[in-house]
């Protein structure tokens, strides 16, 4: 239970970073931390005491394995997270070219 709670504390650190920082790169870092926390939470849910990795070996009888379905979801989620991060970085670079700053409050002032 404490492991779940620590994992969500990690999530809330990312949330604080997204809500409170003014630099766009810091916001991207906060989004990445939140994504890592959610990935870890899924794998924690699927863990089983003394379970094995979901792989068969040659002459193996025992079938006490961890849950493969959350692992499958997160395997896809990691690649999606990487491409979304690249998209966010592209948008940040474009904003820097246009306004010459990473500060979101100044970007709001330069509207119109």
């Amino acid at each position: 239970m404490s492991v779940y709670f620590l994992c969500l504390v990690l999530f809330s650190i990312g949330l604080y970073c997204v809500l409170r920082r003014r630099n766009i790169i810091k916001i991207i870092i906060g989004i990445s931390i939140m994504e890592y926390a959610v990935n870890l939470f899924f794998i924690l849910i699927g863990y089983r005491w003394h379970g094995r990795a979901p792989l068969l070996s040659q002459n193996q009888e025992v079938l006490r394995m961890v849950d493969p379905i959350p692992q499958e979801l997160i395997l896809i989620s990691i690649v999606i997270g990487l491409s979304v991060l690249a998209l966010l970085v592209a948008i940040a670079i474009k904003i820097f070219d246009k306004y010459n700053t990473f500060d979101i409050t100044k970007i709001r002032k330069l509207k119109g």
């Binding site: 990445s32 794998i43 863990y47 990795a53 395997l75 990691i78 690649v79």
Partner: peptide
């Protein structure tokens, strides 16, 4: 530690690209 070797490989490489 949580018995997910596929994810460990993918996360390591994705982290470097990130």
């Amino acid at each position: 530690l949580l018995k997910a070797p596929d994810l460990a490989i993918t996360q390591l490489v994705a982290e470097i690209l990130c």
